[in-house]
Write a protein that binds this DNA or RNA. Structure first.
Lengths: 253, 253
DNA sequence: ATAATCAGTATATAACGTACACAGTTTTAG
DNA sequence: CTAAAACTGTGTACGTTATATACTGATTAT
């Protein structure tokens, strides 16, 4: 009845049970010395998974496909990871990578702005990242580093911690939402693109949808311009940060 | 070589091919008169799918599970729908329902605010809606009605249509992101909830994550308060609309 | 030396979406 | 009025998926 041996999963420090996935993400796995040497490392598995997803999307990433990539059998992967969900959780932190260093001389608004653009770009290095269903609040080292960078951008302000956190989070949510939109646009065939406004025009009754019809007539849904996406990302981010600015000013009279 | 008969899928009006899914969403399916009467209707299928998803989540909605609900065989469903993806697409419009009527006397900010809260509440009537992967830009009647309502809320302003659309869209994206967050919080066991901050505390090196450590010490991640979610939703929305206000004012000197 | 622990493999299972062929029903064309 | 065409729901079958389980063999601690 050893209470330590009794613990079902994960390691524990000072009565706090750390989920196994988080342990693995931070590399706090106690080695385990007996038995044969491993044929690969968890890092290799994760990196190979990223290769597969880069090539064939998240939907194309199956355990068997990944095993083939590594030259092992499907089931061998389960010696490194408890489940596919856990693998994806590790992926989601690894693939986003660390944030770029932020110039500490920047004012909070410029810093947050740069941070947002950096996240936007980081996402589009592996767009399938957006397909990962977020199950638990992120706790991997890269995710935490991004959060750290965002929070430190707000460090100059006199805001309470709660507010800093909320603002940073909201910027991140904005970036992810926008990235999703852009990805959606990209994934369409040019034919569909051209069709969308005309389909709407056919389907919408101008009497029931006057505002929409007006927007449609103003070619709101036509996205011929080359960098529709970045311009709109810029626009929305500026509005968002305008709102933040007003709030920050209310703390610096 | 009849060019009409040659068309592979969907109906067409004036050279614009309407995708079949959109036809079905708007109920523009030409009946098809020959053959036996149908045992059910597409609406019944969709409603049953909503029942299943309400009971067992989107992951629990399989074609066979849905068929059982309806008392038919799995394959019978494919007489109503080309694929599960198409069913889900129809679901995504049906389940969000129509927007509530907006008081036209409201100022744009109050109207948008009410609109955002209404969407927030609508989502939480069927939280699994958030799990639906958005494949194509939404074009169903309910989605369009929500968009119409949002745009008409901005109708009083002097903004160009593009800007109106962007602002409305950004509010909607904010609502969805926040809803995702709240859902994530809800889905956790109270035990995990309590653990998250302490796990972070164990894992984070205060030297490498000073800002995060400070936030952690300020109990930013402790969510004991009863309505944590609504308060933060309110907060972020206010900041967002503050930003909009500044922009709108720049058009009304 | 022997027992415990680990690695990778092989096999098997349940669930999934859906292609396909079929039998029965209703409407339309000749 | 008959026959063809179009449509319904069903049964069967296939390929994929994640993963449980039992195994063989390697390595190390006792």
């Amino acid at each position: 009845m050893n209470p330590v041996a009794e613990r079902p999963t994960g390691g524990a420090v000072n009565d706090v049970v750390i989920p196994k996935a988080i342990e693995l993400a931070w590399g706090i796995g106690e080695a385990g010395t007996r038995g044969p040497k491993r044929g690969m490392s968890l890092d290799q598995v994760i990196d190979a998974a990223i290769e597969v997803a880069d090539a064939e999307g998240l939907a194309g990433l199956s355990m068997s496909r990944l095993a083939k990539q590594l030259g092992f059998t499907t089931m061998s992967l389960y010696r490194y990871v408890d489940s596919k969900d856990m693998l994806v959780l590790l992926l989601s932190d690894r693939v986003i990578g660390p944030p770029p260093p932020l110039d500490p001389a920047l004012q909070w608004r410029d810093a947050l702005d740069a941070w947002a653009f950096a996240e936007f770009e980081a996402i589009f290095k592996h767009p399938w990242w957006l397909d990962i269903p977020l199950a638990a609040p992120p706790a991997g080292p890269n995710n935490m580093a991004w959060l750290e960078a965002g929070l430190s951008a707000m460090g100059q302000t006199a805001l309470p911690e709660q507010a800093k956190f909320q603002l940073v989070m909201n910027v991140s949510l904005y970036v992810m939402s926008r990235a999703r939109l852009v990805r959606e646009m990209m994934s369409e065939t040019p034919e569909d693109d051209a069709n969308y406004p005309s389909v709407l025009a056919k389907v919408l009754d101008p009497e029931k949808f006057p505002a929409l019809t007006k927007a449609l007539a103003a070619q709101v849904f036509d996205l011929d311009e080359t960098d529709w996406d970045v311009a709109d990302f810029r626009f929305g981010l500026d509005r968002l940060l305008d709102g933040f600015e007003r709030y920050v000013e209310s703390y610096e009279p």
